[in-house]
């Protein structure tokens, strides 16, 4: 997966969690939670969907790496490079 694919994947997951999410105006460098008004319960869904879709096990201490769209790409790129 390329960086763009990963961004699309995350956006698709967010849309699936909250179909009212305003994805168009998302700043990739800013925290997702604040911009999308997600709470920690919703945030866990992103992790769980990544596991369901790509069998990725993300340890709890790595969750902060998923804070922004850009940091998701940096963190997930090596994990998803063969997918």
């Amino acid at each position: 997966m390329t960086g763009e694919d990963i961004k699309d994947l995350i956006l698709e997951i967010i849309e699936d969690i909250d179909d009212e999410a305003d994805l168009a105006s998302l700043d990739p460098a800013e925290p997702l939670r604040e911009q999308l008004d997600l709470d920690s319960m919703d945030f866990l869904d992103i992790v769980m969907e990544l596991r369901k879709r790509h069998q990725l096990q993300i340890p709890e201490e790595d969750y902060p790496n998923l804070a922004t769209l850009n940091s998701c790409v940096i963190y997930l790129e090596p994990l998803l490079k063969d997918k």
């Binding site: 969690i17 909250d18 009212e20 008004d37 709470d39 319960m41 919703d42 869904d45």
Partner: peptide
């Protein structure tokens, strides 16, 4: 509907 943080809506979303 639309009140994202309301417990009921959070529950259904979860």
């Amino acid at each position: 509907p639309g009140n994202k943080h309301a417990p009921l809506n959070r529950l259904l979303r979860q």
